[in-house]
Measured scan of single mutants.
Amino acid sequence: NKFNKELQWATWEILNLPNLNEEQVKAFIDSLRDDPSQSANLLAEAKKLNDAQA
């Protein structure tokens, strides 16, 4: 389904953001699992944090 694909994509993207530490990655992945419908928003937040920590 749509959420499953978005969840998989967001998870992959977050795992590959180079500037997030392990705790941050875990927190984003946990949030994705808690509410897959928020995957686009969570991915945007993760990318923003990744850029800020570059």
Score class of each variant (00 low, 15 high):
Ala54Tyr: 09
Leu17Thr: 01
Val25Leu: 07
Asn4Asp: 15
Ala46Asn: 00
Glu22Thr: 11
Ala27Phe: 13
Leu42Val: 15
Thr11Tyr: 09
Phe28Leu: 06
Gln53Thr: 06
Ile14Phe: 04
Val25Ile: 08
Asp51Phe: 10
Pro18Asn: 10
Leu17Gln: 04
Glu23Arg: 11
Leu7Gly: 04
Ala52Trp: 11
Asp30Lys: 11
Arg33Ala: 11
Val25Met: 07
Leu15Ile: 09
Asn16His: 14
Ala40Ile: 10
Ser31Lys: 14
Lys26Met: 09
Glu6Tyr: 05
Leu15Arg: 14
Pro18Ser: 08
Ala44Thr: 12
Asp34Phe: 14
Gln38Gly: 08
Leu15Asn: 07
Val25Ala: 13
Asp30Arg: 09
Ile14Arg: 00
Lys47Ser: 07
Glu23Leu: 06
Ala54Lys: 04
Lys26Ser: 07
Glu23Lys: 12
Asn19Ser: 08
Ser31Val: 09
Ala52Pro: 02
Ala27Asn: 07
Trp9Phe: 14
Glu13Asp: 04
Trp12Thr: 15
Trp9Leu: 11
Gln53Lys: 03
Asn50Ala: 06
Leu15Tyr: 11
Asn21Ser: 02
Asn4Val: 04
Lys2His: 15
Leu32Ser: 01
Asn16Thr: 09
Pro36Gln: 04
Ser37Tyr: 09
Leu42Pro: 00
Glu22Phe: 05
Asp51Ser: 14
Asn19Phe: 12
Lys5Gln: 15
Asn50Met: 01
Ser39Arg: 04
Ala27Arg: 12
Ala10Ile: 10
Ile29Glu: 02
Leu20His: 00
Ala10Met: 06
Trp9Ala: 14
Ser37Lys: 07
Glu13Trp: 07
Asp51Val: 07
Arg33Asp: 05
Leu43Gln: 03
Ala54Val: 10
Leu43Glu: 02
Ile14Leu: 13
Ile29His: 03
Ala46Asp: 00
Glu45Gly: 05
Gln38Ser: 13
Gln53Asn: 06
Phe3Ile: 10
Ala44Gln: 11
Pro36Met: 10
Ser39Ala: 04
Trp12Ala: 15
Asn16Tyr: 05
Ala52Met: 13
Arg33Phe: 15
Lys47Ile: 13
Glu13Pro: 02
Pro18Gly: 10
Ala46His: 00
Lys2Met: 10
Leu20Trp: 00
Asp51Tyr: 13
Gln8Ile: 08
Ser39His: 15
Asp30Gln: 14
Glu45Ile: 12
Asp30Glu: 14
Leu42Lys: 06
Asp30Val: 10
Lys5Arg: 03
Asp35Pro: 00
Glu22Gly: 10
Gln38Asn: 13
Phe3Trp: 08
Asn41Gly: 03
Glu45Met: 09
Ile29Val: 06
Gln24His: 03
Leu17Trp: 02
Asn1Glu: 08
Ala40Phe: 07
Asn41Phe: 14
Gln8Arg: 07
Ala54Asn: 10
Glu23His: 12
Trp9Ser: 08
Asn1Gln: 03
Ser37Leu: 07
Ser31Pro: 02
Phe28Lys: 01
Leu7Glu: 12
Ala27Tyr: 09
Ala44Asp: 13
Pro36Trp: 07
Asn50Gly: 02
Lys48Arg: 13
Asn16Leu: 04
Asn16Ala: 10
Asn50Gln: 01
Phe3Ala: 04
Glu45Ala: 08
Ala54Thr: 12
Ser39Tyr: 15
Ala46Gly: 01
Glu13His: 10
Thr11Gln: 02
Leu49Ile: 09
Gln24Tyr: 02
Ala44His: 12
Leu42Glu: 01
Ser31Arg: 13
Lys26Asn: 06
Leu7Ala: 11
Leu20Gln: 00
Leu17His: 04
Leu42His: 05
Asp30Tyr: 13
Asn1Leu: 03
Leu42Asn: 02
Asn21Ile: 11
Asp51Gln: 11
Ala52Gln: 11
Gln53Met: 13
Pro36Tyr: 04
Ala10Trp: 04
Glu22Ala: 13
Glu23Gln: 11
Ala52Ser: 10
Ile14Ala: 01
Glu13Ile: 07
Leu17Tyr: 05
Leu7Thr: 07
Trp9Met: 12
Gln8Gly: 04
Lys26Leu: 13
Gln24Pro: 00
Ile29Arg: 04
Thr11Pro: 02
Ala44Lys: 11
Asn41Gln: 11
Leu49Gly: 01
Trp9Glu: 15
Asp30Pro: 00
Arg33Glu: 10
Lys48Met: 09
Asn21Gly: 11
Glu22Lys: 06
Ser39Lys: 09
Thr11Gly: 03
Asn1Ala: 01
Asp30Asn: 15
Ala10Glu: 02
Asn4Lys: 03
Asp30Leu: 14
Asp30Ile: 09
Ala40Tyr: 14
Asp51Thr: 08
Asn19Thr: 06
Leu32Lys: 00
Pro36Asp: 03
Asn21Met: 12
Ala40Glu: 10
Asn19Asp: 04
Leu7Phe: 10
Leu42Ala: 05
Leu42Met: 09
Ala10Arg: 02
Asp51Gly: 08
Lys47Leu: 10
Gln8Val: 09
Lys26Trp: 07
Asn4Ala: 04
Trp12Tyr: 11
Lys2Glu: 15
Phe3Tyr: 11
Asn4Thr: 03
Trp9Asn: 09
Pro36Thr: 04
Phe28Trp: 03
Asn50Val: 01
Phe28Arg: 00
Lys2Tyr: 05
Gln8Ala: 09
Lys2Arg: 06
Lys47Arg: 11
Ala40Leu: 13
Glu6Pro: 05
Leu49Pro: 00
Ser37Glu: 08
Glu22Tyr: 09
Ala52Glu: 12
Trp9Thr: 08
Ser37Gly: 08
Leu43Tyr: 08
Gln38Lys: 14
Asp51Glu: 12
Glu22Asp: 13
Asn1His: 04
Asn50Thr: 01
Gln38Leu: 12
Glu23Asn: 12
Phe3Leu: 08
Asp51Asn: 10
Trp12Lys: 09
Ala46Lys: 00
Ala44Arg: 08
Gln8Asn: 03
Asp34Gly: 14
Leu49Tyr: 07
Ile29Asp: 01
Ile14Ser: 01
Asp34Tyr: 14
Thr11Leu: 15
Gln53Glu: 06
Asn50Phe: 01
Asn41Pro: 06
Asn21Trp: 08
Leu49Met: 09
Lys26Asp: 04
Ala10Asp: 03
Asn19Gly: 06
Lys2Trp: 14
Leu42Ser: 03
Asp34Gln: 11
Gln38Phe: 06
Glu22Gln: 12
Ala46Tyr: 03
Phe28Asp: 00
Arg33Val: 07
Asn19Leu: 05
Ala46Glu: 00
Trp12Phe: 14
Ile14Val: 08
Leu17Glu: 01
Asn4Pro: 03
Phe3Gly: 10
Pro18Met: 08
Lys48Ala: 10
Leu15Trp: 07
Ala46Ile: 02
Ile14Gly: 01
Asn16Asp: 04
Ala40His: 09
Gln8Ser: 04
Leu32Ile: 09
Glu13Thr: 10
Glu45Lys: 07
Glu6Leu: 07
Leu42Asp: 01
Glu23Ser: 13
Lys47Thr: 11
Ala10Tyr: 10
Asp34Glu: 13
Asp35Glu: 08
Asp35Trp: 05
Asn21Ala: 13
Gln53Pro: 04
Ser31Ile: 08
Ala10Leu: 13
Asn19Ile: 02
Leu32Pro: 00
Leu43Asp: 00
Leu49Lys: 06
Glu6Asn: 04
Lys2Ile: 15
Ala27Leu: 11
Ala40Trp: 06
Glu23Tyr: 13
Ala27Lys: 14
Asn16Glu: 06
Ala46Arg: 00
Ala52Arg: 11
Phe3Pro: 15
Lys47Met: 15
Ser39Leu: 15
Lys48Thr: 03
Glu6Phe: 12
Leu43Val: 15
Asn4Gly: 07
Trp12His: 15
Ala52Gly: 10
Glu6Ala: 03
Asn1Pro: 02
Lys26Thr: 07
Leu32Val: 05
